[in-house]
Computed example of a mutant assay.
Amino acid sequence: MAKINLLPWRAERRKQRQQEFVAMVVASVIGAGIVFFLILQYHNGQIEGQQARNQLLQQEIRQVDTKITEIEALERTRAQLIARKEVIEQLQASRSQMVHLFDELVRSIPDGVQLSSIQQSGRQLTLEGHAQSNARVSAYMRSLEASEWMTSPDLSIIEARDGPNALPFAFILRVQMATPGQNEDSGVIIDDGTAGGAL
C-alpha cells in the first residue's frame, strides 16, 4: 500500500490561513483607522463650525454691548438735558414770585405789627417781629392765610420781651410759600443757595 505524506500540504495550508488571517487583521485595522479618521474629521469640522459661529456671536455681542453703552450715554445726556430744562422752566415760572411775595408781605402787615427779620428755608419763611398785642398777631395770621402767595401760618413763639415801647410782644411766625393756581404738591421749589439765610 502506497504511503502519502500530507505534512507539507498541511503546513502550507496553515501558513496560507495565517497569511489570510494577518491580511484580514491588517485590512480591518486599516479600515478601522480610515473610519476613525473620517469620524475625527467630521467632529473636527463640527467643532470648527461651532467655533466660527461662537466667534460670530461674540462679535455681534460686542457690537450690541457697544450700542448699549452708547444708548446709556445718550440716556444720561437726555436725563441731564431734561433736568436742566425743568430747572429753567421752574425759574421762568417763579422768577416773579419773590417780587409778589414781598409785595404781599407789605400788604398783609396790619397796623401794630412790625417785622424785624425774614428768613427762607426751602418753601418755608420764618417771620420775626413785634406786635402791640396778641390780637394783632392773630390778625396778621388771618391776613397771611388769605394771601395767594403764602399759606399755613404757624405761630411758634409769642411773648413779652424788651422791644419798642409801642410793640411789647415779640413773635416768630412760620409760613409756607405758595404759587397761585398750583397746589402745594406741584409747587415750584427753587434753591438758589440762600436757603436758611435772611432775605
Rank of each mutant, 00 (worst) to 15 (best):
Val64Phe: 04
Glu104Tyr: 02
Leu91Glu: 07
Leu101Lys: 02
Gln92Gly: 00
Ala93Glu: 13
Gln50Cys: 02
Arg78Tyr: 09
Val99Met: 08
Arg107Val: 06
Gln51Trp: 03
Gly31Trp: 06
Ile68Thr: 04
Arg13Ala: 13
Leu38Ser: 08
Val87Arg: 13
Ala83Cys: 02
Gln97Val: 09
Glu70Asn: 10
Ile61Ser: 07
Leu57Ser: 05
Tyr42His: 06
Lys15Trp: 05
Val35Thr: 11
Ala83Arg: 09
Lys15Ala: 14
Arg14Leu: 12
Val29Trp: 07
Glu86Met: 11
Ala73Val: 03
Gln50Ser: 10
Ala27Gly: 01
Glu72Ala: 04
Ile30Leu: 15
Gln50Lys: 13
Leu91Gly: 05
Glu104Met: 14
Ser28Asp: 10
Val35Glu: 02
Arg62Cys: 02
Phe37Ser: 13
Arg53Gln: 12
Ala83Lys: 13
Lys85Thr: 05
Ala23Met: 04
Glu20Lys: 08
Glu70Cys: 00
Arg78Phe: 11
Glu60Cys: 01
Gln55Ser: 13
Asp103His: 12
Gly33Val: 02
Ala83Thr: 12
Phe21Tyr: 08
Gln58Gly: 03
Gln80Pro: 00
Gln59Tyr: 03
Glu86Tyr: 01
Gln97Met: 14
Arg17Trp: 03
Ile47Asn: 03
Gln92Met: 09
Ile82Arg: 14
Ser108Ala: 15
His43Lys: 11
Glu60Ile: 02
His43Ser: 03
Gln51Ala: 08
Gln50His: 07
Phe21Glu: 10
Met98Tyr: 07
Leu56Arg: 14
Glu48Asn: 06
Leu105Ser: 03
Gln63Tyr: 01
Leu81Phe: 04
Ile71Gln: 11
Glu60Asp: 10
Ser28Glu: 08
Gln16His: 07
Tyr42Asn: 07
Val29His: 06
Leu57Cys: 01
Gln18Trp: 05
Arg107Asn: 08
Val99Ser: 05
Leu74Lys: 15
Gln46Asp: 11
Thr77Ile: 03
Phe21Cys: 05
Ile71Lys: 12
Arg53Asn: 06
Glu72His: 05
Thr66Leu: 10
Gln59Phe: 02
Gln58His: 06
Ala83Leu: 07
Ala79Tyr: 10
Ala83Glu: 15
Ala79Asp: 15
Phe102Cys: 10
Val22Cys: 03
Ile71Trp: 06
Leu105Tyr: 08
Glu104Leu: 02
Ile68Cys: 02
Asp103Lys: 13
Gly31Glu: 01
Gln58Ala: 14
Ile30Pro: 00
Asn44Gln: 12
Leu91Trp: 09
Gln90Arg: 10
Arg95Met: 12
Val99Leu: 15
Arg17Asn: 04
Asp103Arg: 15
Phe102Asp: 01
Lys15Leu: 12
Asp103Tyr: 09
Gly33Cys: 05
Gly49Met: 02
Arg78Asn: 15
Arg95Glu: 13
Glu89Ser: 09
Gln16Lys: 14
Asn44Tyr: 06
Phe37Gln: 05
